[in-house]
Design a protein around this nucleic acid. Structure first.
Length: 647
RNA sequence: GCCGAUGUAGCUCAGGGGUAGAGCGCUUCCUUGGUAAGGAAGAGGUCAUGGGUUCAAUUCCCAUCAUUGGCUCCA
């Protein structure tokens, strides 16, 4: 007998060679039906593997990430089986489970391409195969044998070559065998609902110099109903797409004539953005930032000095040549070199530090055409940029203050679901970076300590640092679950060195300051995009371009409606008037769809008594009140929202 | 940049080898209506651009541009 310890620390005895599935069965038939995989001594296992010694276990159902993972990983194999049947000779790359479903990278061979129209065919085949309830059978194989087995598939051969002998396992279901660590479901039986979502190109092993394989994305569920719900959820998410809402609400547009990736802000979008900027400017004054303004172009030498030219010059917008011989200017891709020159404009004392220069600086970067995406990835954008020049003893404290600003902004806009990512250098690839080993160490340590002292939950990514320094990024997901970097804080020892920045210390000799680059929003464009997707266009009252719309019941009351509008606008309530010759029901409907927070209906009764009939967006009629009371109400709403943030 | 898809009215989309359609929006008229679509008439399109095939191309083919799903990249 062996002792099995469960997560609640209870221990039960089982015969040697028992499987995870049998353990689940012994607990309850229902559990046996729902269990998908098992963790045995911290290793993910198949339910069918036999346990020979004492062990601690945890059973995973659909609700657990591990359970879903096994389910989708097994589904990827099932899809591969279907592809093998439909496209004989297909070679297989990798096929993992992902956050929502799975994919498989495949090479269907000579000139065959799998297009979207063929996805239903794959779906159908998978359903057919799933009904066969084939078991997933694991077997361990020697490296030589594995190489021989997959000799027809160069991708698998490459994968096996990188593995150590003795750690290689195959899984087989139906007629399909795959190199795989597992774990998998006992059989294909639980896979009841299948949806193949999309096809895309994907470079083999993520290397753009290598062959591009066909990546097929899919998702599966144990119940059809769950798939239906998932698809409805996807549709709902698409309705929140900022590109769609931006068009509907007239916030921004693009023009082929102006150029790819160059957003045009329309009046309402501009109003929204201006309010965000004003909001941050106020915060920054409180934190001791000083505004600076710099031009949109800079002499090429500026970027040669900063190191940006060497790194990005070739992939940038091409230099601007002036009539004078040899003069070259670049569209500014960064504000920091300009700010360095402002720092340098006069001698600085240790008493002056920290110096914090802030600018909403518009920068231009030649992003690859395939990368452009709505407002989230563009070629011209405005950073809410600032550079802090400080002494080494001030670094950590300054870093923490920036974290505070970002917390404050995320709180104000109700962004709760973010990931704070510390990006460090790739220790295996140090030639990518500029600056001394020692400075990198110092900078990385400062970030890690500041985060720890702020109690920030972080993930750490090696190799994701900027070329001049490590950084802390705040990532937020859009409506479709894609992650975008918003706020960023970066420590930089290199630019001060390259620009030979100095301050005179207490000891009356020159010292080098440290720079912190920071942008709490990141870029106004991207931030507004994510804000749109989070709010579905229903912006908070203090931010929304139009707070109320006045709807006269008929044209007879247009004069009174105008009077109300003038009155409210004077008291800083942002209103518009809908004086179209339409019935009130129509006006209500149209303005509800425009997501204006308050609809003010005025007719005979209101005109006589100086009232407005208030209707809240999405909630309906709230009754009539004096226009003075409405103005007071809305202003106190806004103030209390902002006060709450200020706490 | 790479692989795939898409491009028809301001917007959302239908159509199809014989020079175009709907709904919404817009204009005008009727109506002046009390909480999510009142009625009528009208304007509006080089069917993304450039080539090719054809008696004839918006439709089929090729290229380009843009958008889009991914991949790579992201100072």
């Amino acid at each position: 007998m062996i002792k099995i310890t469960f997560p609640d620390q209870s221990v039960r005895e089982f015969p040697e060679g028992i499987t995870g599935y049998e353990i689940a069965e012994s607990i309850s038939p229902r559990l046996a039906k729902e269990v998908l995989s098992i963790t045995v001594n911290d290793q993910l296992w198949d339910l069918t593997r036999t346990i020979q010694t004492d062990a601690s276990v945890k059973l995973h159902k659909w609700e657990d990430t591990e359970g879903k993972h096994a389910f989708w990983h097994s589904s990827a194999h099932l899809m591969a089986e279907a592809l093998q049947a439909l496209y004989p000779g297909t070679k297989f790359g990798i096929g993992p489970a992902i956050e929502n479903g799975f994919y498989y990278d495949v090479d269907p061979g000579n000139g065959v391409s799998i297009s979207e129209t063929e996805l239903p065919k794959i779906e159908k085949k998978m359903q057919e195969l799933a009904r066969e309830k084939s078991e997933y059978k694991r077997r361990e194989v020697a490296k030589q044998e594995a190489l021989k087995f997959f000799s027809h598939d160069p991708y698998k051969v490459e994968l096996i070559t990188d593995l150590e002998d003795g750690t290689i396992s195959f899984y087989e279901q139906g007629g399909f065998t795959d190199l795989c660590r597992g774990p998998h479901l006992p059989s294909t039986e639980p896979i009841k609902a299948v949806k193949i979502l999309s096809v895309a190109g994907a470079y083999w092993r993520g290397d753009e110099k290598r062959k591009q394989l066909t990546r097929i994305y899919g998702i599966t569920f144990p119940k059809q109903k769950m798939l239906d719900e998932y698809l409805v959820m996807l549709e709902e998410a698409q309705k929140r797409d900022h590109r769609k809402i931006g068009k509907e609400l007239d916030l921004f547009t693009f023009s082929q004539k102006v150029g790819q990736g160059l957003p045009l802000w329309m009046p309402k979008g501009a109003k929204l953005r201006e309010r965000l900027e004003t909001f941050l400017k106020k915060v920054q004054v409180k934190y001791g930032y000083e505004p600076v303004i710099t031009p949109h172009i800079g002499n090429k030498e500026l970027y040669v000095t900063s190191g940006h030219y060497a790194k990005y010059g070739a992939d940038s917008f091409q230099p601007i040549h002036t009539p004078a011989e040899g003069e070259e200017f670049l569209l500014k891709p960064m504000n920091c070199p300009h700010h360095c020159e402002i720092y340098k404009a006069r001698p600085r004392s240790y008493r002056d530090l920290p110096i914090r220069f802030a600018e909403f600086g518009t920068v231009y970067r030649y992003e690859q055409s395939g990368e452009l995406h709505g407002l989230t990835r563009v070629r011209g954008f405005t950073q809410d940029d600032a550079h802090i020049f400080c002494r080494p003893d001030q670094l950590k404290d300054e870093f923490k203050k920036v974290i505070d600003i970002i917390f404050y902004i995320f709180k104000a806009l109700d962004f709760k679901d973010y990931v704070a990512q510390i990006s460090l250098r790739d220790p295996k690839n140090t030639e990518k970076y500029i600056g001394s080993e020692e400075n990198w160490d110092k900078a990385e340590r400062a970030i890690i300590e500041a985060c720890a002292e702020k109690g920030l939950n972080t993930v750490t990514e090696m190799g994701e640092a900027a070329f001049y320094g490590p950084k802390l990024d705040f990532m937020i997901k859009d409506a479709l679950g894609r992650k975008w970097q918003l706020g960023t804080i970066q420590v930089d020892y290199n630019l001060p060195e390259r620009f030979e920045l100095e301050y005179i210390g207490q000891d009356n000799s020159a010292h080098r300051p440290i720079m912190i680059h920071r942008a709490p929003f990141g870029s106004m464009e991207r931030f507004v995009a994510v804000l749109i997707e989070h709010t579905a266009g229903k912006f908070p009252l203090w931010l929304t371009p139009e707070q109320a719309v006045i709807l006269p019941i008929s044209e007879k009351y247009n004069d009174y409606a105008k009077e109300v509008q003038n009155y409210l606008n004077k008291l800083d309530v942002r209103t518009i008037l809908d004086d179209r010759n339409e019935k009130i029901g129509k006006k209500i409907r149209d303005n509800e769809l425009k997501r204006i927070p308050y609809l003010l209906i005025v007719g005979e009764k209101e005109a006589e008594e100086g009232l407005v009939a208030v209707r809240k967006q999405g909630e309906g009629d709230k009754g009539a009140m004096k226009k003075e009371d409405f103005a007071a109400f809305i202003n106190s709403e806004v103030n209390s929202m902002l006060a709450e943030i200020d706490e």
